[in-house]
Amino acid sequence: MYRFLLTPRWWGINVFVLLAIPFCIFMGSWQLSRFEDRMQDQQTVTDQAESGKREAARPLAELLPVDKATSGRLVTATGRYDRQLLVPDRELDDKAGYYVLTLLRTDGGKALPVVRGWLPGTPDPAKVPAAPTGEVTVTGALQASETPGSNGVSAQGGLPAGQTGAISAASLVNLVPYDVYDAWVTLSEADSGMTAVPAAAPADTGLDLKAFQNLGYTGEWFVFAGFVVFMWFRLLRREIEFLRDAELGLVPDEEPVAVDVGSK
């Protein structure tokens, strides 16, 4: 009865099933591993943030370039404040406001972008406290350069003079006549009259929308693997029932073709 499985039609069906099921399981497992990696990254970032609060700040040069392991760590840098810019459209505690960004000229000639704090409302240079003069040593959380258009960072152009949409070396190097570090620092304690900006998690970490998309894709691939198995058994059962009906003579014969004898 099962000799029909050796027909060319069923050979094609069987090969498809044998290839589709492992492929679906592999893709589902890969998506699940991506979700687990993001969960692990979230835990690592949380542990790193807690340990960073207890660790002593280290010199900036020791933690560059910024990566997932160094993002959020406390650093120190010494220099003199120079050009000041405002970063609009930044929320803090669900309130609209802006960052106060001041470039710190270090001994090496490069400038380190330093977020001195956050103020509510629309950017207004008249409301911003003046930066300290003379040589200063700042302490804050190290952050990677932002990418316009991602993680809530504005990608709009044409901002007024004295403003920048993203805190990144690529954006700032066009506004100042000196090199800028490919990183920035948010002060642990904001300057007078401003609110400290908390450190952000590194990009592609945490339980964000992408993480739950990976979890959803995991379920889809495993469901599709089950659907392939279900359809194979359904086709098999239908073929067996058809053969049994044929053996019992329950399969209707083809209707005879009517011939008009009188016309011949």
Rank of each mutant, 00 (worst) to 15 (best):
K110A: 12
P129L: 10
A246Q: 13
A161H: 11
L236V: 11
R116W: 01
F26L: 14
S263D: 11
P59F: 02
Q156Y: 06
A20D: 00
G140S: 04
A203G: 10
D124F: 07
N214R: 02
V17W: 00
A225I: 10
M1R: 09
D82S: 15
D94A: 13
P132A: 06
A199Q: 08
L86F: 02
P129Q: 04
D37P: 01
S33V: 00
E36R: 13
L207P: 03
K95P: 05
F23I: 15
A131R: 08
N174K: 15
A61T: 13
L250R: 15
Y178S: 05
K127D: 06
A77I: 06
L215A: 13
D182K: 09
Y81W: 06
A69T: 12
D182R: 12
R3K: 11
F222S: 00
E62L: 09
D41N: 12
V45Q: 07
F224V: 06
T78N: 05
L243D: 08
V259L: 11
R234K: 13
D124Y: 05
K95M: 07
T44E: 12
W118V: 05
G206Q: 02
Y98M: 05
S145V: 08
L187M: 06
F233N: 11
L60T: 03
I25V: 15
A111V: 12
S188G: 15
D245M: 12
P160W: 01
W232L: 12
P129S: 08
F16Y: 02
V87H: 03
L92R: 12
A161D: 13
P65S: 04
Q143N: 11
I25S: 03
D179Q: 13
L209F: 10
K210H: 10
L63F: 02
Q163A: 10
N151K: 15
D67M: 04
M194L: 15
F222L: 11
Q40P: 04
T164L: 14
D179Y: 06
L236N: 07
E50N: 14
Y2L: 12
T102V: 11
V176K: 05
